[in-house]
Simulated assay, not measured.
Amino acid sequence: MFDTQSPFLPAGVPDSVSIAEDRLRLAIISGALAPGERLSEVGICKDYGVGRGVVRTALARLAHSGFVSSQPRSGWKVTPITAIGLREIILGRRQLEPLLADVELPPEEFRRLETLSDMHAAMAAAHTAGLDEQIVLARRYERQLKHLLAMHLRAPLITGWLENLWDKSERYVGFLEAKGGRKLPLTDWSVFIDAKRSGHAPAAREYLIEVCEIFAQFTQARFLEADVAAIEIAPKKSKAPAVDFSAAASSRNQTNPKRMS
């Protein structure tokens, strides 16, 4: 989720519903609200100091964005982390993110883009030198850079889809990094800047495609590792007796003679 306090973003006064929505979204993205966790409207009202109507509207918006779900007699629940959810994010980014290569920025906006790229590179270098906390700042500048490009697409619907995909990407990366300890590699946005400066849109598009593939490869590999780890742990917790599958198969074949053919 991009930094709403950044001086590079336009100023505005959000309404109470938007504030509650943003706080809940950030809590979900950061993992403060865990996947599958049940949400209490009353609890949120107390925590955020807002009314029930505000909370319900904020949750309805988050449900529309795919961060929470509502079930009859079960209330609200944080959307779980799933392989299907990851696949949707990857496919969406592959289809939409390369469109940013064709964005035309006025000179002053391009200078802002360059500044964000330089700041991202500085934080990435600090991270490489062993300052792990700088990766958070690097990713924040990267998100602001992509947000700046998305705002100039002149297609509000696509801009909204991209912002939502990036929020979900951040959530999945944070969850998988916490599980395995490995970090998603930082990318060098100066390559994209140089391509845009020279007017070489195909090279800029190739860079964005590569960014999407780095995300896909990292998350799919980490997801598989987490899934395998879960499978390895599961038998230790199971107390079910062993099953003689050969005997069971023989019994089924005797019941259904067609299986013998």
Rank of each mutant, 00 (worst) to 15 (best):
D194I: 01
V68K: 10
L165R: 10
V50C: 04
G31H: 11
E232V: 04
I81S: 11
A121V: 03
W161S: 05
A150E: 06
A229S: 14
V13P: 00
G66Y: 15
E177Q: 12
Y172Q: 09
T219I: 08
R171P: 06
K258Y: 04
R38C: 10
G12V: 01
A11L: 15
R87C: 01
A32T: 11
E109A: 10
P107E: 08
P106F: 12
G66P: 10
A125C: 01
T128G: 00
R56M: 14
F110E: 05
T219N: 02
R171C: 13
R23D: 09
S30Q: 10
I233G: 00
E108P: 01
M260W: 06
S40D: 11
D167H: 02
L91W: 03
Q220P: 00
N256Y: 15
S261H: 08
T79Q: 09
T219G: 01
A122W: 07
E41D: 02
V13Q: 01
R222D: 15
R38V: 10
E206S: 03
T4Q: 03
D227Q: 15
E225A: 14
F215V: 08
K146Q: 11
G199C: 03
S117A: 14
M119F: 10
D102Q: 07
D47A: 12
A226D: 05
W189T: 04
A83M: 07
L62M: 06
W76F: 10
L26K: 12
A155S: 06
I90P: 00
Q220C: 05
S250I: 00
D244F: 09
L149K: 04
F223P: 04
L116P: 05
A155D: 11
R222E: 15
F8K: 09
R182C: 13
T57L: 11
R56D: 14
H152F: 15
G31D: 10
R252S: 06
E41G: 01
E109D: 06
Q95K: 13
K196W: 09
K196P: 02
V55N: 08
L96Q: 12
E104D: 06
W189D: 08
F2G: 01
T82Y: 07
L86K: 08
E210P: 00
A34W: 13
A34Q: 14
F245E: 07
V68N: 12
R139M: 05
T128V: 07
Y48V: 02
M123S: 08
L62H: 09
E210V: 12
S74T: 00
V55G: 07
L165F: 14
P10G: 07
L9T: 01
V68C: 13
Y172V: 15
E104H: 05
R252L: 12
G75L: 12
A150S: 11
R38S: 15
R38T: 14
G49F: 13
P156G: 08
F215D: 13
W166L: 11
V103I: 14
G31P: 05
